[in-house]
Simulated assay, not measured.
Amino acid sequence: MPNSELMPIGVFAQRTGLTSSALRFYADSGLLPPAQVNPVTGYRYYDADQLVRATTLRRLREIAMPLATVETVLGAGADEAARLLDEHVAKVEGDAAAARRTAGVIKSALGGNVPGALIATLKGPVLADAVEQVLTATAHEPGMAVLAGLHIEASDEAIALTATDRYRLSTRTLAPTRPAEQTWTGTVDGDDLRAAVADVRRSALVRIEAVPHGIRLRMPRREYRHCRMLPEEYPDLRLMLASLGEVTARATLSKDLLLRALEEHPGEHVCLHITEHGVHVRSPNDDEHPTIPLAATVTGDGLRIRFELTTLYPAVSTAIGPDVLLDLRGHDQPVTIRSADGGTLTTLAMPIKSDQPA
Protein backbone atom coordinates (compact mmCIF):
# COMPACT_ATOMS: atom_id res chain seq x y z
CA MET A 1 0.00 0.00 0.00
CA PRO A 2 1.26 3.51 -0.71
CA ASN A 3 2.41 5.85 2.00
CA SER A 4 -0.53 7.99 3.24
CA GLU A 5 1.45 11.15 2.33
CA LEU A 6 1.67 10.15 -1.33
CA MET A 7 -0.86 11.46 -3.85
CA PRO A 8 -2.61 9.37 -6.48
CA ILE A 9 -2.07 10.53 -10.03
CA GLY A 10 -5.48 12.28 -10.22
CA VAL A 11 -4.82 14.44 -7.16
CA PHE A 12 -1.29 15.22 -8.33
CA ALA A 13 -2.64 16.20 -11.74
CA GLN A 14 -5.08 18.67 -10.17
CA ARG A 15 -2.38 20.26 -8.02
CA THR A 16 0.13 20.67 -10.85
CA GLY A 17 -2.14 21.53 -13.76
CA LEU A 18 -0.89 18.54 -15.75
CA THR A 19 -3.29 15.94 -17.11
CA SER A 20 -3.02 12.33 -16.00
CA SER A 21 -2.05 11.34 -19.55
CA ALA A 22 0.71 13.97 -19.56
CA LEU A 23 2.02 12.65 -16.24
CA ARG A 24 2.15 9.15 -17.66
CA PHE A 25 4.03 10.44 -20.71
CA TYR A 26 6.56 12.33 -18.59
CA ALA A 27 6.97 9.29 -16.34
CA ASP A 28 7.67 7.03 -19.34
CA SER A 29 10.13 9.59 -20.76
CA GLY A 30 12.00 9.74 -17.45
CA LEU A 31 11.32 13.45 -16.82
CA LEU A 32 8.95 12.90 -13.89
CA PRO A 33 8.78 9.31 -12.66
CA PRO A 34 6.26 8.66 -9.86
CA ALA A 35 7.54 8.25 -6.34
CA GLN A 36 5.88 4.85 -6.08
CA VAL A 37 4.01 2.41 -8.33
CA ASN A 38 1.71 -0.25 -6.87
CA PRO A 39 3.10 -3.54 -8.23
CA VAL A 40 -0.34 -5.17 -8.26
CA THR A 41 -2.62 -2.46 -9.64
CA GLY A 42 -0.01 -0.35 -11.46
CA TYR A 43 -1.40 2.81 -9.82
CA ARG A 44 1.08 5.66 -9.70
CA TYR A 45 1.65 7.86 -6.66
CA TYR A 46 3.56 11.12 -6.32
CA ASP A 47 5.26 12.87 -3.43
CA ALA A 48 4.63 16.48 -2.40
CA ASP A 49 8.33 17.19 -3.04
CA GLN A 50 7.67 16.60 -6.74
CA LEU A 51 5.15 19.46 -7.03
CA VAL A 52 7.74 22.13 -7.83
CA ARG A 53 9.41 20.03 -10.53
CA ALA A 54 6.07 19.13 -12.08
CA THR A 55 4.85 22.73 -12.10
CA THR A 56 8.11 23.94 -13.63
CA LEU A 57 7.87 21.20 -16.25
CA ARG A 58 4.35 22.32 -17.17
CA ARG A 59 5.41 25.95 -17.50
CA LEU A 60 8.40 25.08 -19.66
CA ARG A 61 6.17 23.09 -21.99
CA GLU A 62 3.66 25.97 -22.12
CA ILE A 63 6.37 28.12 -23.73
CA ALA A 64 7.00 25.33 -26.28
CA MET A 65 10.40 24.30 -24.95
CA PRO A 66 11.60 21.00 -26.47
CA LEU A 67 11.76 17.99 -24.14
CA ALA A 68 15.52 17.68 -24.41
CA THR A 69 15.99 21.28 -23.31
CA VAL A 70 13.38 20.87 -20.57
CA GLU A 71 15.39 17.99 -19.13
CA THR A 72 18.57 20.08 -19.18
CA VAL A 73 16.83 23.05 -17.50
CA LEU A 74 15.34 20.85 -14.76
CA GLY A 75 18.77 19.46 -13.96
CA ALA A 76 20.67 22.75 -14.19
CA GLY A 77 21.55 25.36 -11.60
CA ALA A 78 19.73 28.69 -11.50
CA ASP A 79 22.20 30.61 -13.70
CA GLU A 80 22.41 27.92 -16.38
CA ALA A 81 18.63 27.47 -16.36
CA ALA A 82 18.15 31.23 -16.81
CA ARG A 83 20.57 31.24 -19.75
CA LEU A 84 18.74 28.36 -21.43
CA LEU A 85 15.40 30.11 -20.92
CA ASP A 86 16.73 33.31 -22.48
CA GLU A 87 18.06 31.38 -25.47
CA HIS A 88 14.73 29.64 -25.96
CA VAL A 89 12.69 32.85 -25.73
CA ALA A 90 15.04 34.58 -28.19
CA LYS A 91 14.53 31.72 -30.66
CA VAL A 92 10.75 31.83 -30.24
CA GLU A 93 10.72 35.59 -30.81
CA GLY A 94 12.95 35.24 -33.86
CA ASP A 95 10.74 32.52 -35.31
CA ALA A 96 7.63 34.65 -34.67
CA ALA A 97 9.19 37.69 -36.36
CA ALA A 98 10.17 35.59 -39.38
CA ALA A 99 6.65 34.14 -39.54
CA ARG A 100 5.14 37.64 -39.46
CA ARG A 101 7.39 38.78 -42.30
CA THR A 102 6.55 35.75 -44.41
CA ALA A 103 2.84 36.10 -43.69
CA GLY A 104 3.02 39.75 -44.75
CA VAL A 105 4.63 38.82 -48.07
CA ILE A 106 1.99 36.13 -48.63
CA LYS A 107 -0.84 38.54 -47.83
CA SER A 108 0.46 41.08 -50.30
CA ALA A 109 0.94 38.39 -52.95
CA LEU A 110 -2.63 37.17 -52.44
CA GLY A 111 -3.79 40.64 -53.40
CA GLY A 112 -2.47 40.16 -56.91
CA ASN A 113 -0.18 42.47 -58.85
CA VAL A 114 -2.28 45.60 -58.45
CA PRO A 115 -0.15 48.10 -56.47
CA GLY A 116 -1.46 49.49 -53.22
CA ALA A 117 -2.75 53.04 -53.04
CA LEU A 118 0.05 55.49 -52.22
CA ILE A 119 -0.56 57.27 -48.92
CA ALA A 120 2.93 58.76 -48.40
CA THR A 121 6.48 58.78 -49.70
CA LEU A 122 9.02 59.65 -47.02
CA LYS A 123 12.76 59.68 -46.50
CA GLY A 124 13.67 56.40 -44.85
CA PRO A 125 15.87 57.73 -42.01
CA VAL A 126 13.28 60.37 -41.12
CA LEU A 127 10.45 57.83 -41.05
CA ALA A 128 12.52 55.37 -38.98
CA ASP A 129 13.33 58.03 -36.36
CA ALA A 130 9.70 59.12 -36.16
CA VAL A 131 8.42 55.56 -35.75
CA GLU A 132 10.92 54.79 -32.98
CA GLN A 133 10.15 58.03 -31.16
CA VAL A 134 6.39 57.64 -31.23
CA LEU A 135 6.35 53.90 -30.48
CA THR A 136 7.85 54.58 -27.04
CA ALA A 137 4.29 55.50 -26.01
CA THR A 138 2.83 52.08 -26.85
CA ALA A 139 1.97 49.32 -24.39
CA HIS A 140 0.94 45.67 -24.54
CA GLU A 141 -2.19 45.51 -22.38
CA PRO A 142 -4.42 42.41 -22.14
CA GLY A 143 -7.69 43.08 -23.91
CA MET A 144 -6.45 46.41 -25.38
CA ALA A 145 -4.36 45.42 -28.40
CA VAL A 146 -4.87 48.85 -29.96
CA LEU A 147 -2.51 50.41 -27.38
CA ALA A 148 0.35 48.49 -29.03
CA GLY A 149 -0.37 50.11 -32.38
CA LEU A 150 0.71 53.21 -34.27
CA HIS A 151 -2.20 55.34 -35.48
CA ILE A 152 -1.60 56.86 -38.91
CA GLU A 153 -3.48 59.76 -40.49
CA ALA A 154 -2.28 60.57 -43.98
CA SER A 155 -3.29 63.38 -46.33
CA ASP A 156 -1.66 65.00 -49.33
CA GLU A 157 -0.04 67.59 -47.05
CA ALA A 158 1.16 65.56 -44.04
CA ILE A 159 1.26 62.20 -42.32
CA ALA A 160 0.71 62.11 -38.56
CA LEU A 161 1.95 59.23 -36.41
CA THR A 162 0.41 58.83 -32.95
CA ALA A 163 0.64 56.33 -30.09
CA THR A 164 -0.66 56.23 -26.54
CA ASP A 165 -0.39 53.93 -23.53
CA ARG A 166 -3.09 55.96 -21.65
CA TYR A 167 -0.42 57.70 -19.53
CA ARG A 168 1.51 59.22 -22.43
CA LEU A 169 0.51 60.30 -25.90
CA SER A 170 3.19 60.93 -28.52
CA THR A 171 2.57 62.32 -31.96
CA ARG A 172 4.81 63.46 -34.80
CA THR A 173 3.85 64.98 -38.13
CA LEU A 174 5.96 64.45 -41.26
CA ALA A 175 5.85 66.18 -44.61
CA PRO A 176 5.75 63.68 -47.53
CA THR A 177 8.20 64.11 -50.39
CA ARG A 178 5.49 63.27 -52.92
CA PRO A 179 1.72 63.91 -52.87
CA ALA A 180 -0.47 61.04 -51.72
CA GLU A 181 -3.04 59.41 -53.98
CA GLN A 182 -5.67 59.36 -51.22
CA THR A 183 -6.25 60.19 -47.60
CA TRP A 184 -5.95 57.23 -45.23
CA THR A 185 -6.49 56.54 -41.54
CA GLY A 186 -5.72 53.36 -39.64
CA THR A 187 -3.89 51.75 -36.75
CA VAL A 188 -0.93 49.53 -37.62
CA ASP A 189 0.68 46.84 -35.48
CA GLY A 190 3.61 48.40 -33.63
CA ASP A 191 5.67 45.21 -33.52
CA ASP A 192 5.49 44.88 -37.31
CA LEU A 193 6.79 48.43 -37.67
CA ARG A 194 9.60 47.82 -35.19
CA ALA A 195 10.69 44.80 -37.18
CA ALA A 196 10.81 46.90 -40.35
CA VAL A 197 12.69 49.92 -38.91
CA ALA A 198 16.19 48.68 -39.78
CA ASP A 199 15.34 48.28 -43.48
CA VAL A 200 13.44 51.59 -43.49
CA ARG A 201 16.41 53.45 -42.03
CA ARG A 202 18.72 52.16 -44.77
CA SER A 203 16.38 53.24 -47.58
CA ALA A 204 16.61 56.67 -49.17
CA LEU A 205 12.87 56.74 -49.87
CA VAL A 206 10.04 54.61 -48.55
CA ARG A 207 6.71 54.36 -50.32
CA ILE A 208 3.83 53.66 -47.91
CA GLU A 209 0.92 51.96 -49.64
CA ALA A 210 -2.53 51.05 -48.34
CA VAL A 211 -3.28 47.38 -49.00
CA PRO A 212 -5.98 45.03 -47.70
CA HIS A 213 -5.53 44.38 -43.98
CA GLY A 214 -2.64 46.82 -43.50
CA ILE A 215 0.05 48.88 -45.15
CA ARG A 216 2.98 47.94 -47.33
CA LEU A 217 6.39 49.59 -47.05
CA ARG A 218 8.03 49.50 -50.46
CA MET A 219 11.77 50.26 -50.55
CA PRO A 220 14.20 50.27 -53.50
CA ARG A 221 16.32 47.10 -53.79
CA ARG A 222 14.74 45.63 -50.64
CA GLU A 223 11.96 43.18 -49.99
CA TYR A 224 8.82 45.11 -49.15
CA ARG A 225 7.39 44.83 -45.64
CA HIS A 226 3.76 44.29 -44.73
CA CYS A 227 2.42 45.75 -41.45
CA ARG A 228 -0.89 44.44 -40.15
CA MET A 229 -3.88 46.61 -39.46
CA LEU A 230 -5.36 46.41 -35.96
CA PRO A 231 -9.16 46.13 -36.13
CA GLU A 232 -9.92 47.77 -32.77
CA GLU A 233 -11.16 51.35 -32.73
CA TYR A 234 -8.47 53.84 -31.72
CA PRO A 235 -9.18 56.33 -28.88
CA ASP A 236 -10.74 59.63 -30.01
CA LEU A 237 -7.59 61.74 -29.83
CA ARG A 238 -9.19 64.89 -31.24
CA LEU A 239 -11.79 64.89 -28.50
CA MET A 240 -9.12 64.39 -25.85
CA LEU A 241 -6.90 67.16 -27.22
CA ALA A 242 -9.85 69.53 -27.57
CA SER A 243 -10.76 68.97 -23.93
CA LEU A 244 -7.36 70.11 -22.62
CA GLY A 245 -7.42 73.20 -20.45
CA GLU A 246 -5.56 76.40 -21.23
CA VAL A 247 -1.82 76.56 -20.62
CA THR A 248 -1.19 78.38 -17.32
CA ALA A 249 2.61 78.05 -17.20
CA ARG A 250 5.43 77.42 -19.63
CA ALA A 251 8.99 76.36 -18.86
CA THR A 252 11.90 76.01 -21.26
CA LEU A 253 14.98 74.16 -20.05
CA SER A 254 17.85 71.88 -21.06
CA LYS A 255 16.72 68.41 -22.04
CA ASP A 256 19.99 66.80 -20.91
CA LEU A 257 19.98 68.49 -17.50
CA LEU A 258 16.37 67.47 -16.88
CA LEU A 259 17.10 63.88 -17.88
CA ARG A 260 20.16 63.80 -15.61
CA ALA A 261 18.11 65.06 -12.69
CA LEU A 262 15.47 62.39 -13.33
CA GLU A 263 18.17 59.70 -13.56
CA GLU A 264 19.61 60.79 -10.20
CA HIS A 265 16.21 60.89 -8.53
CA PRO A 266 15.93 57.70 -6.44
CA GLY A 267 12.14 57.45 -6.10
CA GLU A 268 9.41 56.01 -8.32
CA HIS A 269 7.48 59.29 -8.17
CA VAL A 270 8.94 62.70 -8.93
CA CYS A 271 7.63 66.22 -8.39
CA LEU A 272 8.39 69.17 -10.66
CA HIS A 273 8.13 72.45 -8.78
CA ILE A 274 7.78 75.28 -11.29
CA THR A 275 8.66 78.76 -9.95
CA GLU A 276 9.69 82.05 -11.48
CA HIS A 277 13.30 81.07 -10.70
CA GLY A 278 13.31 77.75 -12.57
CA VAL A 279 12.28 74.12 -12.39
CA HIS A 280 13.05 72.12 -9.24
CA VAL A 281 13.14 68.32 -9.39
CA ARG A 282 12.22 66.98 -5.98
CA SER A 283 10.58 64.16 -4.08
CA PRO A 284 6.81 64.40 -3.53
CA ASN A 285 7.77 64.35 0.17
CA ASP A 286 10.00 67.41 0.35
CA ASP A 287 12.33 66.12 3.05
CA GLU A 288 12.85 62.66 1.58
CA HIS A 289 15.51 63.53 -1.02
CA PRO A 290 17.53 66.64 -1.91
CA THR A 291 15.97 69.05 -4.42
CA ILE A 292 17.75 69.49 -7.77
CA PRO A 293 17.33 73.05 -9.13
CA LEU A 294 17.45 73.52 -12.91
CA ALA A 295 17.81 76.81 -14.74
CA ALA A 296 14.75 77.50 -16.87
CA THR A 297 12.85 80.29 -18.55
CA VAL A 298 9.44 80.31 -16.90
CA THR A 299 6.30 82.29 -17.68
CA GLY A 300 2.90 82.06 -16.03
CA ASP A 301 1.81 80.66 -12.69
CA GLY A 302 3.97 78.48 -10.49
CA LEU A 303 2.81 75.00 -9.53
CA ARG A 304 3.85 71.58 -8.34
CA ILE A 305 3.03 68.55 -10.45
CA ARG A 306 3.76 64.87 -9.78
CA PHE A 307 4.62 62.11 -12.25
CA GLU A 308 5.49 58.47 -12.33
CA LEU A 309 9.18 58.43 -13.31
CA THR A 310 8.37 55.78 -15.92
CA THR A 311 5.94 58.21 -17.56
CA LEU A 312 7.96 61.43 -17.46
CA TYR A 313 11.42 60.13 -18.34
CA PRO A 314 10.61 58.57 -21.76
CA ALA A 315 8.42 61.56 -22.62
CA VAL A 316 11.42 63.86 -22.14
CA SER A 317 14.06 61.53 -23.60
CA THR A 318 12.39 61.28 -27.01
CA ALA A 319 12.14 65.06 -27.46
CA ILE A 320 14.01 66.51 -30.41
CA GLY A 321 16.73 69.11 -29.88
CA PRO A 322 18.78 70.33 -26.91
CA ASP A 323 15.94 72.09 -25.08
CA VAL A 324 12.42 71.04 -24.11
CA LEU A 325 9.36 73.17 -23.64
CA LEU A 326 6.82 72.21 -20.98
CA ASP A 327 3.28 73.54 -21.32
CA LEU A 328 1.48 73.13 -17.98
CA ARG A 329 -2.22 73.40 -17.24
CA GLY A 330 -2.39 72.56 -13.55
CA HIS A 331 -1.32 69.83 -11.13
CA ASP A 332 -4.00 67.40 -12.38
CA GLN A 333 -3.82 68.11 -16.14
CA PRO A 334 -1.55 66.60 -18.82
CA VAL A 335 1.70 68.44 -19.52
CA THR A 336 2.70 68.94 -23.15
CA ILE A 337 6.39 68.23 -23.83
CA ARG A 338 7.90 69.32 -27.12
CA SER A 339 11.06 70.71 -28.63
CA ALA A 340 11.78 74.31 -27.84
CA ASP A 341 13.03 74.88 -31.39
CA GLY A 342 9.72 73.93 -33.00
CA GLY A 343 10.24 70.23 -33.65
CA THR A 344 7.20 68.26 -34.74
CA LEU A 345 7.35 65.60 -32.00
CA THR A 346 4.86 66.34 -29.23
CA THR A 347 4.18 64.25 -26.14
CA LEU A 348 1.47 64.53 -23.50
CA ALA A 349 2.34 63.09 -20.08
CA MET A 350 -0.31 62.39 -17.46
CA PRO A 351 0.47 63.42 -13.86
CA ILE A 352 -0.50 61.43 -10.80
CA LYS A 353 -2.88 62.73 -8.15
CA SER A 354 -1.29 64.98 -5.56
CA ASP A 355 -2.80 62.93 -2.77
CA GLN A 356 -1.39 59.65 -4.12
CA PRO A 357 1.15 58.07 -1.74
CA ALA A 358 4.75 58.58 -2.81
Score class of each variant (00 low, 15 high):
G267V: 06
P334W: 12
P322Q: 01
A81W: 02
S29R: 14
L272D: 05
L31R: 09
T55L: 12
D327G: 12
T41P: 09
Y167G: 04
R172M: 12
G124H: 03
T138W: 04
S283D: 15
A261L: 01
T183K: 01
Q36G: 08
A48K: 14
D256G: 05
D28Y: 06
Q182L: 00
T177S: 10
L325I: 09
T41R: 10
P212L: 03
L161C: 04
L135W: 03
V247F: 06
R218G: 00
L345H: 04
P142N: 13
G77I: 12
E288F: 08
L237Q: 14
L174W: 00
A98Q: 13
F25G: 04
Q36M: 14
Q182I: 02
A160G: 05
T162R: 09
R166G: 03
T275C: 00
L18P: 01
C227N: 03
V197Y: 11
D47Q: 10
I119F: 00
C271N: 09
L272Q: 04
T185V: 08
T297V: 11
A210T: 00
G300H: 10
V281P: 05
L135P: 00
E263Y: 07
A315I: 11
L147M: 13
L174G: 00
T187F: 03
A198T: 13
R228V: 01
W184P: 05
F12R: 07
D156N: 14
V105C: 12
G17I: 11
P220Y: 05
Y234S: 11
H213E: 15
L303K: 06
Y313D: 10
A249L: 05
M7R: 12
L84G: 07
P334L: 12
F307E: 13
L74A: 09
L74C: 07
E62H: 09
G104M: 09
K107H: 14
M219I: 06
L122E: 03
S354L: 12
L217K: 06
R168T: 09
V146C: 06
E288A: 13
G104W: 07
P334G: 13
E246C: 07
G10E: 15
R218K: 07
T162E: 04
R172P: 04
A48T: 12
V126R: 14
D199F: 02
V316E: 03
A163V: 01
T248R: 15
R238F: 08
